[in-house]
């Protein structure tokens, strides 16, 4: 649905995006991660053709935006990072203006406006001026404007910034719904945990390049050197005994005792972890807590970014 090959975007003397490839199919949600200045916004703008790439090929549902821009834009819903708004319009008027811009037919346009205002929980604010809305409400309003034409390709730049937790949950639901209806979604965010729940695949950008991409599970598998194992003994079982037991296991490395717990690196699967727990119990060591702790996405991506930068 969204296909990008060898994309490059230049601003004056700065190359914002370089040699970027991206494929997002119908129903997929792709998350773009990276620090400020990594090139996420430029990538999204280039796909939306709000800016023109220097090199590269982009296809939206098979349509080349350079050749048939209007056809491509019929398929695109674009939401920039800072919500552009007309402060003096009401919510109803704002949605009406952009519904017209996306060729939503006049008969039924006002119903559509009302429907989408309700879906982002702004129905009661339909006649409120945009300037009187909170930051999160404004963000939801722009989201409604983006989803209202029911585009096949959704390009969302930091859509959750400023939203409260309830609104975020609602946004996730709406995006899942759009994806379920066959839309391809590209979303950039700094909130990694949010992408974890929302995306079918993610890509990490650093200095204009995509340094790693794939499904989150796949990236974990590729990048994680190990999972941290934490065992808290129960009753009279000393943590040292647990450490001594783990010492002899080939799937465990570096067991150490800290604050009455035993911490180690575990290199096996979840099934193997279950077998290890059984073995611990069979050896007579009582365990109050046995946990496999994955490295957080945040630290994982920070590590990737740092490695690529260095």
């Amino acid at each position: 649905m969204i296909s990008v090959k060898s994309l490059r975007v230049d601003y004056d003397t700065v190359t914002a995006v370089e040699d970027l490839d991206l494929e997002v199919g119908p129903g997929e949600v792709f998350g773009l991660l990276g620090p400020n200045g990594a090139g996420k916004t430029s990538t999204i703008k280039a796909i939306a053709r709000a800016i023109e790439p220097t090199y590269g090929e982009i296809r939206i549902d098979g349509v080349d935006p350079d050749v048939h821009p209007e056809e491509a834009w019929r398929r695109i819903g674009y939401m920039p990072d800072l919500p552009p708004l007309y402060p003096d319009l009401t919510v109803r008027q704002y949605l009406d203006v952009f519904a017209a811009a996306h060729l939503v037919a006049r008969p039924g346009r006002s119903d559509r406006v009302r429907e989408w205002a309700a879906r982002v929980d702004l129905e009661k604010k339909l006649d409120t001026r945009v300037s009187e809305l909170s930051r999160g409400m404004k963000q939801r309003l722009v989201l409604a404007k983006t989803l209202l034409p029911e585009p096949k390709a959704l390009l969302l730049d930091e859509p959750a910034s400023g939203m409260d937790p309830i609104a975020r949950v609602e946004m996730r639901r709406l995006l899942h719904e759009a994806a379920a209806n066959g839309a391809a979604v590209v979303i950039s965010s700094h909130i990694l945990s949010e992408l974890d729940e929302l995306c079918t695949a993610v890509g990490v950008m650093e200095k204009g390049r995509m340094v790693v991409s794939g499904s989150i599970a796949d990236i974990r598998r590729r990048l994680e050197t190990g999972v941290r194992l934490r065992v808290r003994p129960a009753g009279a079982t000393p943590a040292e005994a647990v450490a001594a037991f783990l010492e002899g296991n080939p799937l465990v490395s570096g067991p150490a005792v800290a604050a009455g717990q035993c911490l180690a690196e575990f290199h096996g699967t979840e099934d193997q972890a279950a077998e290890l727990l059984s073995a611990l119990a069979a050896s007579g060591l009582t365990v109050a807590e046995f946990a496999l702790e994955h490295e957080s996405l945040e630290s994982l991506f920070m590590r990737v970014g740092a490695r690529e930068t260095s």
Binding site: A50, P84, Y86
Partner: peptide, 18 residues
């Protein structure tokens, strides 16, 4: 001037209307 100030031009640039 309001179009430039509010940054809404990007919306129109990415809209299918001629």
């Amino acid at each position: 001037a309001a179009e430039v100030r509010e940054g809404t031009l990007d919306f129109y640039r990415a809209a299918p209307l001629y």
